[in-house]
Computed example of a mutant assay.
Amino acid sequence: MENSYPQYITKEAIEMLDEKLNLAVRDKYSQDWQYEVSDPSRVSEFILFYEDAILNNEEKFALMSLIISSLDDALEEGYEISGLWGKISHHLVNEIKIHYNTIQYWALLEEDLDNCFAVTPLIRDVAKKYLL
């Protein structure tokens, strides 16, 4: 599959999402934005913003990375996620060219599930159906 869509989260996408979603303030040395501002209690809010806001591909890519990171935290912390995964997977599949790299990253197809993220089994299902 040709991958002409985002591979990295851009500064511009981060700044827009930080402002619109009132995300945590980070210092100038911050890295891995999606992990630093991840919030398992806001997954539904992030999904609604994804669905309702007018976003470019870079913003969608960044926001989906945040959504999945937050969902991973929610799974780790025992939050109820019923209904959320269906919405997330719908967007991953419908805009697979934008989220191809995100799916690849979280699926960890080369790893044993013992060494993976909590969300990896869910993402692997999408990867196996639509990427392989």
Rank of each mutant, 00 (worst) to 15 (best):
residue 67 I to R: 00
residue 110 E to L: 04
residue 16 M to C: 02
residue 13 A to W: 12
residue 74 A to K: 03
residue 77 E to N: 12
residue 33 W to C: 05
residue 89 S to H: 05
residue 52 D to M: 15
residue 34 Q to R: 13
residue 67 I to E: 01
residue 106 W to V: 06
residue 45 E to T: 11
residue 88 I to F: 10
residue 129 K to H: 08
residue 129 K to S: 12
residue 68 I to V: 15
residue 14 I to Q: 14
residue 45 E to D: 07
residue 27 D to R: 03
residue 81 I to A: 01
residue 116 C to P: 06
residue 11 K to L: 10
residue 102 T to L: 15
residue 16 M to H: 13
residue 130 Y to R: 04
residue 64 M to Q: 08
residue 96 I to V: 09
residue 35 Y to R: 07
residue 73 D to L: 10
residue 51 E to D: 05
residue 77 E to M: 07
residue 120 T to I: 06
residue 86 G to K: 13
residue 40 P to C: 12
residue 95 E to L: 06
residue 9 I to D: 13
residue 60 K to I: 11
residue 96 I to Q: 04
residue 44 S to P: 00
residue 128 K to Q: 08
residue 87 K to I: 13
residue 37 V to R: 05
residue 109 L to F: 09
residue 19 E to G: 02
residue 70 S to D: 06
residue 64 M to R: 04
residue 36 E to K: 12
residue 116 C to A: 13
residue 1 M to G: 15
residue 117 F to M: 02
residue 124 R to P: 00
residue 56 N to R: 11
residue 91 H to K: 12
residue 95 E to C: 13
residue 43 V to M: 02
residue 108 L to E: 15
residue 9 I to C: 10
residue 20 K to W: 07
residue 89 S to K: 12
residue 6 P to R: 02
residue 131 L to P: 01
residue 105 Y to A: 07
residue 111 E to H: 14
residue 1 M to K: 09
residue 84 L to K: 06
residue 29 Y to N: 12
residue 98 I to C: 08
residue 59 E to N: 11
residue 58 E to P: 00
residue 71 L to P: 02
residue 76 E to Y: 03
residue 115 N to G: 05
residue 98 I to Y: 11
residue 71 L to G: 00
residue 21 L to H: 03
residue 62 A to L: 07
residue 66 L to S: 05
residue 5 Y to R: 08
residue 79 Y to H: 14
residue 9 I to P: 07
residue 106 W to G: 02
residue 26 R to I: 14
residue 45 E to N: 06
residue 36 E to I: 04
residue 103 I to Y: 10
residue 35 Y to N: 09
residue 30 S to A: 15
residue 67 I to W: 01
residue 35 Y to C: 04
residue 42 R to P: 02
residue 7 Q to W: 08
residue 123 I to P: 00
residue 117 F to T: 01
residue 30 S to W: 11
residue 62 A to T: 08
residue 18 D to C: 12
residue 26 R to W: 09
residue 66 L to Q: 01
residue 122 L to P: 00
residue 16 M to G: 01
residue 131 L to A: 03
residue 98 I to V: 15
residue 94 N to L: 08
residue 24 A to R: 15
residue 118 A to T: 05
residue 63 L to R: 03
residue 26 R to C: 04
residue 110 E to I: 03
residue 105 Y to R: 10
residue 103 I to H: 05
residue 58 E to R: 04
residue 113 L to H: 01
residue 96 I to D: 05
